[in-house]
Design a protein around this nucleic acid. Sequence first.
DNA 1: GTCTATACCAAGATAGAC
DNA 2: GTCTATCTTGGTATAGAC
Lengths: 194, 194
Amino acid sequence: MKAEDRRELILTAAMGVFGDYGYVGTTTDQIARAAGVSQPYVVRMFGTKEKLFLEVLHRALAGIFAAFDAVLAEESELPLERRLGLAYFGLLAQHGLLLSLMHSFVLGNEPVIGQAARAGFLEVYNYLRDAAGFSAEQAQEFLAQGMLANTMIGLRMTDWVGEDPRASELLESCFPGKLPMVLELGDLHRPGGK
Amino acid sequence: MKAEDRRELILTAAMGVFGDYGYVGTTTDQIARAAGVSQPYVVRMFGTKEKLFLEVLHRALAGIFAAFDAVLAEESELPLERRLGLAYFGLLAQHGLLLSLMHSFVLGNEPVIGQAARAGFLEVYNYLRDAAGFSAEQAQEFLAQGMLANTMIGLRMTDWVGEDPRASELLESCFPGKLPMVLELGDLHRPGGK
DNA sequence: GTCTATACCAAGATAGAC
DNA sequence: GTCTATCTTGGTATAGAC
């Protein structure tokens, strides 16, 4: 296999593991095993764990913009907020995409990663304001809902559906009409999830 | 000094450091230095880093409920959501309180901490629904705004006020009328902040 | 292009002195 | 009650073979 393909493989694996355990909590060895290569190879290919994480971050953001662009390009009766929200939920199918971002969002102190995370978040905000044409209030509300959704996934709150009725009630408000899908995808974000 | 007082000192220091660097990213030595004691002493007193973090989590939640209880006990013209929101912002004055929680919210995979984090989050939700009398939608919206506010602090977005007009705009929506206060408190959540 | 072996360092935890 | 010294583990990164 050539380097470019391995790169893809490793990046995908890294996104999943980083999403599950966070930047600091993830070892390059975990990523290597998830990708089916040796630990030194991961480091060799990306230089450092930090650089690898930055690439994952970049990819995650690109994934968001791609999904949103697709929404803006399509015709629909539904209000734009709703459609972008659904597209956002769709990103849960990519293991670790939203959670890697979420982890970066609490690392503002990290000199390199924090900077990238702030810039990335603002890019999303700018997209909502400019490309999507949201007002400041609309964009803020959209992001707030997104952050709560991320939190539900990060907490693995889906594991408590059925056990605690209030957990179900909250999740139903966070993912209106999409709980079944989210529960299914929730399996990804668990130890051992593909 | 007796053990009980040291305990307080260490817990306060630990909350700040955990908030700044997260559970995994924090070393017991950082905490020890922040508290002015030796690293082994921190471990000795709390058993393990994990147990210490769980105590911090417990304290952070207690802080939230104390602040909310005070709001419910007082008379006011303002709507309850607004008053609880302001009380929430007030918690920013306690270094690391909201951010330690936020870090725990993305650690759902951690067997012990994840469980505690989920339970803690649901306690807050239950409080809003029962003690505060919020509807499911009100509680969800309140939490969404809280998670976005936490994210802004975690990202240290306040550092970009003045540099990026969109950062200011977003922060102003997140902390309506309270930006000056938040900017001042933002200094706490920076490397070297007391 | 990918691995094995390993150097090196940082961190949590323990032992035991004072 | 608190410290110094230290054990042990685990994790990033490097060297170098195949």
